[in-house]
């Protein structure tokens, strides 16, 4: 984070020394782009704060089903609809593995969590359009299945 700030400040200084007008224009562009996306951003944050109420217990319960196919399907669905920062997601993934949940199911959860964004829809559709967003997320869902299955095969959990 500090690195990002240092990099930004240095970039602004260099830009300012090279062309004052252009730098001011850059700030105007930044503000305009931010204002345009702000309502969708706030809406997304509100959805996230509700979806985070899905408890770890519920995730453990659904992912740890006897039937590994049902476990995988649950992991893909829960991963797609939830979103969580990495510092929450990975410790949770660690707990899942400790509980004896297969790597395949954990992979399905982690991958769809990262790639499929049901909850980021309000923001994504502003940038990618409705069709683009739906197709990209559909693609990501299929890729999550592929990754989970290959992880499952590599760990000797399927076949």
């Amino acid at each position: 984070m500090t690195g990002l700030y240092i990099f930004t400040i240095i970039s602004v200084l260099i830009s300012f020394l090279m062309d004052r007008k252009k730098t001011i224009l850059a700030f105007k562009v930044a503000l305009k782009k931010f204002v345009a996306i702000l309502p969708s951003f706030l809406k997304m944050l509100i959805y996230i704060s509700f979806i985070l109420m899905i408890s770890d217990q519920l995730i453990i319960k659904y992912l740890g089903q006897e039937n590994s196919i049902l476990g995988l399907v649950s992991s893909l669905i829960l991963g797609s609809i939830t979103i969580m920062p990495g510092f929450i997601a990975y410790p949770l993934a660690g707990i899942l593995v400790e509980k004896g949940i297969s790597y395949m199911v954990v992979a399905g959860f982690v991958t769809s969590l990262m790639m499929v964004g049901v909850i980021t829809y309000p923001v994504e559709k502003e940038y990618l359009g409705v069709k683009g967003t739906l197709m990209r997320n559909g693609m990501s869902f299929i890729i999550s299945i592929i990754v989970a299955l290959i992880i499952g095969i590599s760990y000797g959990e399927v076949f």
């Binding site: 984070m1 990002l4 700030y5 990099f7 930004t8 970039s11 602004v12 830009s15 252009k22 730098t23 224009l25 850059a26 700030f27 105007k28 562009v29 930044a30 503000l31 782009k33 931010f34 951003f41 944050l45 509100i46 996230i48 704060s49 509700f50 985070l52 109420m53 920062p85």
Partner: peptide, 25 residues
């Protein structure tokens, strides 16, 4: 929950959008 994400965003957004602005010009 809202604040947890909002604080992260508030930290990242200013430099990120300034960099996007610089990129644009």
């Amino acid at each position: 929950n809202f604040m947890m994400f909002a604080i992260e965003m508030i930290k990242i957004i200013p430099p990120a959008f300034v960099l996007i602005g610089l990129f644009d010009v």
